[in-house]
Design a protein around this nucleic acid. Structure first.
Lengths: 157, 157
DNA sequence: AACCTCTGCTTGATTGGTCAAGCAAATATC
DNA sequence: GATATTTGCTTGACCAATCAAGCAGAGGTT
């Protein structure tokens, strides 16, 4: 990508403009709102909830730090720190990886699973109230595909 | 909000589930990608760009800290710090507010405006490539309205 | 088997944000 | 018009994330 903006692209149309602005606002408001709902409700911040949730969906309820970080959209060091927080609460335990002694597995404890079960209704409700509720009548599957493209695709140069 | 999750709401459908996951990813990836494009291109981080942009769209190219913070989706103290960064680069100047001596106006300097003009093609290109491009064929106006609701609405209890 | 080099994770330093406390000007109340 | 309260912004303390450097185990090459 030597100089991606040699030619100035088409300015945004009014619809594009308001979509971009609205997305900016949602990206700011939504995680805070959901996090606040959950913390107020069950004392479990969104980052930690996400980690527990991803662990719970996995056979053996365990994941390598690497993979978990990817699933949580966190850097490896951010993940380390999150797991440490969870470990001190007894919600997660770390075990050396059997096939590769450099690796660690984060393992969901029974307490962690219980905590997750306790929290998920609160999370679910927050997601519905704060987000999904406002998309009645929108083609969700199509929208999801568009977001997946935007989230994963490399930009066309 | 005494206990918003007394009744467990309906679990997410597969479409809802993947929309939520995809949104999570986009919220993580998109600002970083755009910011990286812009920093690589013009050395102007997204937060600072947003501040300059909002100032430029205003009569007199000036705004009270309060209003600017709202437009930039930043806390007042976060805004103070951003403006300080911009001030040391000479892109913004602060002036006591005439009608209310407690208040400050952030004023876009000529250098700041020039910097913005220099950067906006890069920002525009990034937004198109990283985001809008993936929404061909989607009803943008309708989508924008849904996001506005999600961003501004108080949740229904 | 001794030696790179690579990989998986942690740790230290920094950053960009938040909240709470502080300060100075404005406004209301008596 | 003095005092109390509120408002607008800044400052200090903190926090959760990042990046870069470090360390220990794995794996190849000779």
């Amino acid at each position: 990508m030597a100089n991606p903006s040699t030619a100035t692209p088409q300015p945004l149309s009014p619809d594009e403009e308001s979509l971009v602005r609205a997305l900016g606002q949602v990206m700011h408001v939504l995680p805070r709102a959901i996090d606040a709902d959950m913390v107020g409700d069950r004392q479990l911040p969104l980052t930690e909830y996400t980690a527990l949730m991803n662990l719970s969906e996995t056979p053996g309820r365990r994941l390598r730090m690497n993979e978990l970080a990817g699933l949580c959209h966190l850097s490896l060091s951010g993940m380390t720190r999150t797991i440490i927080r969870l470990e001190t609460q007894g919600l997660v335990r770390r075990e050396r990886c059997e096939e590769d002694a450099r690796g660690w597995n984060a393992v969901l404890t029974d307490a962690g699973f219980a905590r997750l079960e306790e929290s998920w209704p609160s999370h679910l409700a927050a997601v519905r109230r704060r987000f999904l509720q406002h998309f009645e009548g929108v083609d969700l599957a199509r929208l999801a595909r568009a977001f997946q493209r935007a989230g994963t695709a490399e930009p066309t140069d």
